[in-house]
């Protein structure tokens, strides 16, 4: 069974978000592997351990090779760098045709990627990729088991409801969490992965879909109200919170 993991960089949630006209300032953005793609990679590694599946990590050329090298250190058999006419800030929906061609090219049986990207204004990758390929897709997956023909997944449907689905392969799955946290890649392991190479380039002719969505403005959200800052010292702050909690119930104290 051939499992392809799509890995993408996303703006690091801890770093400042540099804004520009109509989008982010892509030159200034600090990137990190998208946290859900990270979980998808871990599930793929688990699949490989459990079923001996071949795992191929796939990334866009503009995202660099580091995430592919990390994927190989995490257990991917090889990695593929997709060269295509793709710009920074391309939406997941627009990306779908490009990635669909890559999947067909690689002969993927199972495509896994993260459930969402933080900038997904126009929808998430998994449903659009499934539609492009004409394959069944499930987004919001907590665990994957698979054999050659079908995958069994736990799907988080919200409000505490989890459904176990059996999905015919080939299929596209969007991973929300992995059964174990993403493994650590030590410096030594990464170095060995870099030395091993195993990254090939795949040129894709398909172009990103045109998106009818047009961003008019891109701003920092306005604050609904100013928060009242409590003390920095944890002891003092604990006292303040305790007082707030104790007085709670006395409507006059609340400042809504």
């Amino acid at each position: 069974m051939k499992v392809v993991v799509i890995l993408r960089n996303a703006p690091d949630p801890l770093e400042e978000l540099p804004l520009a006209e109509g989008g982010l300032d892509w030159d200034e953005v600090a990137y990190a592997l998208d946290i859900f793609d990270d979980c998808a990679l871990e599930e793929a590694a688990l699949l490989k351990e459990e079923t001996g599946a071949e795992v191929i990590a796939l990334g866009l050329a503009k995202d660099g090779v580091r995430l592919l090298q990390t994927a190989i250190a995490r257990g991917a058999d090889r990695a593929v760098r997709v060269e295509a006419d793709v710009e920074d800030g391309v939406s997941s929906r627009s990306l779908a045709p490009v990635l669909a061609e890559a999947m067909r090219n690689l002969g993927a049986d199972l495509v896994v990627t993260g459930v969402q990207a933080p900038g997904d204004l126009a929808g998430q990758l998994v449903p659009f990729l499934g539609a492009e390929l004409g394959w069944p897709e499930v987004n919001g997956v907590l665990a994957i088991e698979a054999d050659g023909n079908r995958a069994r997944v736990r799907n988080d449907q919200g409000a505490g409801r989890v459904v176990v689905l059996s999905v015919a392969l080939p299929a596209v799955l969007g991973v929300q969490t992995s059964r174990r946290p993403p493994s650590y890649v030590s410096g030594t392991k990464l170095r060995k992965a870099i030395e091993a190479g195993a990254i090939s380039t795949l040129k894709i002719d398909a172009v990103p879909a045109k998106d009818a969505v047009e961003i008019v403005e891109f701003i920092r959200p306005p604050r609904d109200r100013a928060v009242e800052r409590l003390a920095d010292d944890p002891d003092v702050a604990a006292g303040q919170i305790a007082r707030l909690l104790e007085n709670f119930g006395n409507e006059a104290q609340r400042d809504v």
């Binding site: 801890l14 770093e15 995490r74 993403p182 493994s183 650590y184 890649v185």
Partner: peptide
């Protein structure tokens, strides 16, 4: 164990933070 990735998740987070941000507190 570190090479094998067999680490407590708190340790993984601290090491990843140290590698990425240069400190274990995950602050830029």
């Amino acid at each position: 164990l570190v090479d094998d990735g067999r680490l407590d998740p708190g340790l993984t987070a601290a090491l990843n933070a140290a590698r990425r941000y240069g400190n274990v507190f995950k602050r830029p």
